[in-house]
């Protein structure tokens, strides 16, 4: 336990002292500033009398001519943070010759990987919690409308889901840092996976869904709906989709996890969206959250087992 705490502290100190994270912090705070700026410009226009959760709107307003919104930024940026925190966790220790020295100290071997993972997790948590509270504080100062208890809960959920998403990417990067001996290789592998999921997953999902359920202009609502269901089902392989759907349900109570397509159909069929209570929102995203958690756990478990089983060979 003592070993875990020491390694955790050392890793945390490393993170705080490295320029890498100075840059990440600055970038995140820049995004916070942009969020506040855009909220200041647009929140009055987005909010009308029927808006129930005004405070949440601070976080979801997007610029009318600037393609920026806080959730979009987070969904792109969190993977980068996670990868940056994890990609050289184990292999840098190995190549620098610190690993065997470290392991010859009276600590359990898993202390090393756990301590590193925990330090990364705390880093992500500090980043996300600080940015959300900063935006909330500045936003409160600006709009003067205090959040309701449910809004606070929803923001907490947003923070937790975001940390979880960061944890997934970090555990993937840690896994690669165990598998690949070179930090550059593991960084590239992580980024490659991220780019693949980010750029091509939608394309592939669309391709498969179109093949299975061909739709055209004459398609019935049922066909479009089944296409949409399939499309999103395939897309959910990507943790990014799980994250976006989760934060959508948490931050946009009206939407739930409905896709834009289904929203359109809903609007045409005259369904008026009403905000869901938090419990309902959570129920909707429960599978996504569990999926994200499971992916994180799987990646970390593989990394953990590989690291524990690994024999320190004579070089």
């Amino acid at each position: 336990m003592a070993g875990l705490i020491e390694i955790f502290r050392k890793e945390l100190a490393d993170n705080f002292n490295s320029k890498r994270f100075l840059i990440l912090f600055l970038l995140v705070y820049l995004a916070g500033a942009a969020t506040i700026y855009i909220a200041a410009q647009n929140i009055r226009a987005t909010v009308d009398d029927s808006t129930r959760y005004i405070f949440l709107n601070l976080f979801i307003v997007s610029g009318s001519n600037i393609p920026f919104s806080f959730p979009l930024f987070m969904s792109i940026f969190i993977p980068i943070i996670g990868i940056a925190l994890g990609f050289d966790a184990v292999n840098s220790e190995r190549t620098s010759g610190n690993l065997s020295r470290l392991l010859s100290q009276p600590i359990y071997r898993d202390n090393v990987i756990n301590g590193k993972f925990l330090a990364g997790l705390v880093m992500i948590a500090i980043l996300i919690v600080s940015i959300v509270t900063l935006v909330a504080g500045l936003g409160l100062r600006m709009i003067g409308v205090p959040p309701e208890a449910e809004e606070i809960l929803r923001l907490c959920m947003f923070v937790i889901v975001s940390i979880l998403y960061g944890a997934f990417w970090m555990s993937l990067a840690v896994l690669f840092s165990v598998v690949f001996n070179k930090a550059a290789t593991s960084a590239l592998a992580s980024i490659a996976i991220w780019l693949f999921l980010f750029l091509f997953m939608g394309l592939i999902a669309n391709l498969i869904a179109v093949t299975v359920v061909p739709i055209n202009a004459d398609s019935t609502v049922e066909q479009i709906a089944s296409f949409d269901t399939l499309y999103r089902m395939i897309n959910r392989i990507s943790p990014g989709t799980l994250y976006v759907e989760s934060i959508q349900a948490v931050l946009l109570p009206i939407l739930g996890t409905s896709s834009p397509t289904m929203m359109m159909i809903g609007i045409y069929s005259g369904l008026k969206p009403t905000p869901l209570p938090l419990s309902q929102s959570l129920l909707i995203v429960w599978p996504q959250l569990v999926g994200l958690l499971a992916l994180t756990a799987i990646c970390f478990a593989i990394a953990y087992i590989k690291f524990m089983r690994e024999e320190i060979r004579a070089t």
Binding site: E6, G97, R101, L102, T315
Partner: peptide, 26 residues
């Protein structure tokens, strides 16, 4: 144990490296 290719944390001072080892030893 002193491994063949011993390495230290390059961005830490000698003292800090030793401190880390010491703390790991409680």
């Amino acid at each position: 144990y002193m491994p063949e290719k011993i390495g230290f944390y390059d961005d830490l001072t000698a003292r800090e490296n030793l401190e880390y080892t010491g703390r790991l030893n409680g």
